[in-house]
Write a protein that binds this DNA or RNA. Structure first.
Length: 102
DNA sequence: CGTGTGACGCGGG
DNA sequence: CCCCGCGCCACAC
């Protein structure tokens, strides 16, 4: 397993309940500021098997990146279950829920 | 080895 | 807010 991948997985696993981070945030924190897309791919590949809180990762627009009918509904409900509130535009408030990586 | 594809991000209209 | 284009990068064909 590559170093970057391990960093990403390690970081994601530390996101506190009720909080979120963006793909870009994770990429940056792991030393590759342009690798947001890779972070997404890593989640798709390992989330299920490694029991990661994948739902706590969204895009920089504070919205869920999964298409409706393709995981969107599930991610949303998981976040709501943790107390996160979505506004009328399906976005969440970063001032309340964003987790600023250590 | 060229080409297409994203669970992305940023700027612009 | 929505829609586009462009840059980015690992991967599948």
């Amino acid at each position: 397993m590559e170093w970057f991948t391990e960093q990403v997985i390690g970081l994601i696993s530390q996101i506190p309940e009720g909080k979120f981070v963006s793909y870009g945030q994770v990429a940056k924190a792991c030393g590759k500021p342009r690798a947001a897309r890779q972070v997404a791919r890593i989640l798709k590949t390992y989330s299920a098997k490694l029991n990661l809180p994948w739902h706590r990762v969204i895009n920089s627009q504070f919205k869920i990146s999964l298409g409706k009918g393709n995981g969107y509904e599930e991610q949303k409900s998981l976040l709501i279950a943790e107390g996160i509130v979505f506004d009328n535009n399906d976005k969440i408030d970063p001032r309340k829920y964003r987790w600023d990586i250590e």
